[in-house]
Structure formats: C-alpha cells, structure tokens
Design a protein around this nucleic acid. Structure first.
Lengths: 270, 270
DNA sequence: TCTTGCATACTACCATGCAAGTATGGTAGT
DNA sequence: ACTACCATACTTGCATGGTAGTATGCAAGA
C-alpha cells in the first residue's frame, strides 16, 4: 500500500494546490472501502437506543475499536457504510465522525473519503510530555492533602489491577489504571484536568493496546510499574514518585519505535 | 433572569428525570431567542467563501465573539437564526455548534435551545493550572537549548506588544502575546502541546477580554508582567521565570472573583 | 505496449423536510 | 382572581435528496 504522508495530503483543505497532488497518492486514499461495511457491522453490538442521542452512541461505537486497534490506521470509514451498519441515516454518523476528527482519531478527505488516522509520533511524544508533567505537578499538591481513606482507595485500585492481571482481564486492568489516575486528580479538585488528559491519552492508549498484543509480558511490566508508583506514593516519596511516573508514561514513546519496526509503515506518520 | 445552574439542567441528557425539572427553570432556557437573529447577523463580515468548508467558517464566525464577550454567556444561538444570518442551511451551522460544544463554549439543550455557556469557575481555575504547569515545564527545557536568534525573536515579539499597547491596539497585543507563548513551545518541538493549551486558553481568554473592558489599566498590567517574564528569560533565571509566569497566568483566576461582583450572576457557574 | 480520454461509481458536503419535545400565551372553567 | 388546559410557535434531532469533486476501469488511439 502506498504510504500516506501528512505532507502530501492535508485533510479538509480545498486549496488550489490540491489539484496538483499526484493521482498515485490520491488513489491510496480510496481503495478498500468495500470491505468497510461488514467490518463496521461487526462492531455494532445491538440496535441503538432511540432514547439517547444517535450521534453520541455512534461516536462511542467507533472510538473504542479505533483506540484498541481493531480498526487499524488507514481503515475506511464511509458515512454511508456506517449508516447502513448501525441502521440510521448519514446525519448522526457524520456528526460522530466530526467528533472523531476533533479528537484526531480520523481524517476526512473532502469528496474522497474518511479514514482512521495513522499513529502520529509527534502527537504521542508530546502527549507523554503533557501527561507526565501534569500528573507530577498534581501529585505534588496531593501528597500534602491526601487522607487515610484516599490512600486506602488508591491501594484498593492497585489490588484490583493485580486481580485483573491474574485473571488475564486486560480490560479491567486498564479500567482500574484509568480510575487510579483520575482519582488522583479528583483528590486535588481537578477533575476537568483529567478529562483534558483523557483526550490526549486516547493516542497513548492506541499504542498501549498495540503493545499489549505484540509485546510479550507487557501487561506484567505495566503492573510492576504501577506497583512501584503506588509504593512511592504511600511512602510520601514524591521525587521517587515523579521519576517512576515519568518512566512509566514515557515508556509508551520508547516502545513506539520498537512497534514501528514490526507494523506496516503506513500505520505511522511524522 | 433566572439563574441557570448546572445542577438543575444537564445539557443533552434525555433521561427520564428530565420530566421533573420545574417549568420555571426550563422557561429560562428559552426566552430571548427573538433578538438572536440580528445579533448574529451583525457578526457576519461578508458572504461565506464557497470554496472552503461552510462549517469551519461558521465556527470561526461564532467562536470569536463568544471568547471576546460580544456574545455574552446565556445568549441564544438557534440553528435557524444563524443559518438565516450566514445564508446557509442549518446543516453546517449545526456542525459548527457541535464543534463549539466540544470546546465547551456553548451548551445544547435538546429540543429547547442552544446558548453560550457561562463562565465556569472550575474550568478557568483548572485551566490556569494546566497552562502554568505546562509552560513552566516547557521552559525548563527551552532555556538549555535556546539560540541567539530565538532570544531575539522573543524580544521582538515583546516590543511588538509594547508598540501595540502604545497604539491602544489590544487585538495586536493579544496576538503578539499568543505568538510569544506559542513560539516557546515550538522552540522545544512541542507545537501540538500549544494547540492543546490553546483549547483551554479559550476559557481564560473569555475572562481576559471581560477584564480588559471593566478593569482600568489591565492592558498595562499585562504588558508589565510580560516584560518581567521576558527579562527573566533573557537572564536565564528559570526559577524567576516560572514564578512570574505563574503569577501572570493565575491573575486570571484571581481577577475572576472580582469580575463576578460586577457582572450578572447568570454569567457564571460552579 | 503504452498513453489518453471519458463514462461511471463512489465520496463528502450541503439543502430541505419531517418528527418529537418544549415554552408561551390565551381561554375556559372554578 | 386564579388555576388548568390546550393550541401554537418555537426548538433540536434525524432522514433524505441533490450537487460537486474524485478515483477507477475500460476503450480508443498512438
């Protein structure tokens, strides 16, 4: 497959220079839209709930498989196919796709097609910076105010992770992980900061799910790191906490390179 | 006008309990949708450019006046009115509004109306945390790698701010300010971190524009602080830089309280 | 064999119409 | 005077149709 570089094609730009793009690259944008329909249809769990917004439900249905890698970078997402798969008109599908565009999970090429966005190395690298910076800064405040009950809650979330790993339930492991980090922000009255991070975390999670499938013992490593981090937290060792947290988050960026060598180059960009 | 509290009404929730909301509060949601049309029409500079996406253009047309306070919190934004004002159908207007919803600048109450979101104190307070944390952390890296030319660029952006203040051009002042901060991230290869911050900065800017109108000498104070910050940067005094930057950004949160006393309570939330 | 041109089938974008839900103002009944 | 009710005029959510732009594959020509 021809590589889609972000230099050659800028999504949603109708500028004059779009005329001069080579046909060779353009043809890479279209292509396998045919298999899209059944691929999407398999993701729809059940008929949509008419009492809730269709757009929101479709957004959720699409986002999860993108982040988890079931819809790989470059996968075609045509409005009509998805609409047929979920059983609605194209309108709510379109709104869901626009939402995903803003999250930078898909790219729309006007009049051409919509595709799952590649893994953008720069986005991931900078996402690591944002996460580790905000989480460390937040923790410096939390350690001064944390209560015994809150300590206990964190500890219990860690043991939930251990149990999940033991059962091989990576879903539950990730969920407990997410909740642990979120709670640390809520302890400092910063729940909205976490929702901000959650937006950038989407891109880090795309890498993490891929790593989980390809790299042996990855889940074990995650849990080991979490354990170390919580130990530092319990010991009020903020410096140690920050350095461990930093290593833990930046591991995504480090392993990204390794991932790049065993996956199609078209999965990546930047 | 009746206060719209976020506890009483959750946007875009079609849950069963929506039936029990009191009529008194609901009636506050609708109301002055009549004056919306001409209010919006005054904001449209010229006919839209058909060669670019209508949605994006409408989004830009609406966002600026919201951030600047020309469309105050609570202002009605009905799809039909805006569509008539800009001369398109409701579809691209709808997409622009959805975009603004994601930026948390407007709230949509299904089947009731769409309004400019109030100034959310928590969002602003936590936005300050995000900005000061990321900007300080970024600068710790920048000071080690900054070149002479980059130093000169920052200095020139500061003098552009001085010139703008002298001319009373607050627009140009804000623009140069924004570019200065953005460049500091680009120096470290983190342009995407800045776009992330720009999203939270929207809410801080809403406060800043209001302050600029109400508080005498506010522009002068901003420039004074910028000057101090750049001085610290030039002197490689990173600790001083961070503390000044912190004061500068947190000033928004501090003055927010003061602003709350001289503006309708309905402008605020949380 | 290779290139060029064109019909065709797709795409996303936008316009329009309908449906479901909600606030408002007037009216009938108490 | 006051309350309950209902017609009406809004709102947003969704469905559908038309349009401009793009890739593809075939056919005609060099």
């Amino acid at each position: 497959m021809v590589v889609l570089t972000s230099e050659s094609i800028t999504p949603h730009s109708r500028e004059a220079d779009s005329k001069v793009r080579s046909t060779r690259i353009r043809s890479a944008i279209r292509g396998d839209f045919d298999q899209a329909q059944e691929q999407i249809a398999a993701l729809v769990p059940q008929p949509l709930d008419p009492s809730r917004s269709y757009s929101a439900q479709i957004h959720a249905i699409l986002r999860d498989p993108i982040v988890r890698g079931h819809l790989p970078p470059g996968a075609a997402l045509s409005e009509a196919s998805i609409a047929a798969a979920v059983g609605t008109s194209r309108t709510p599908v379109r709104e869901a796709l626009q939402h995903l565009v803003q999250e930078q999970l898909v790219q729309v090429y006007p009049q051409v097609g919509t595709r799952v966005a590649p893994l953008r190395v720069a986005l991931i690298r900078e996402g690591c910076f944002v996460r580790r910076t905000l989480e460390c800064a937040n923790l410096l405040d939390v350690v001064n105010t944390i209560t015994g009950a809150q300590r206990e809650e964190i500890r219990s979330l860690l043991s939930r992770q251990q149990a999940a790993l033991h059962d091989g339930a990576t879903d539950a492991l990730f969920q407990a992980d997410e909740e642990m980090h979120r709670r640390l922000f809520e302890f400092a009255g910063r729940s909205r900061v976490w929702t901000l991070i959650a937006g950038t975390k989407l891109h880090l999670d795309r890498v993490r799910w891929l790593l989980l499938d390809r790299i042996k013992g990855h889940a074990e490593r995650i849990l080991r790191e979490h354990t170390t981090i919580v130990e530092r937290l319990m010991a009020n060792d903020t410096a140690g906490f920050c350095s461990e947290m930093q290593k833990h988050i930046d591991a995504v960026a480090v392993h990204l390179l390794e991932l790049r060598s065993c996956l199609p180059e078209s999965y990546f960009s930047d």
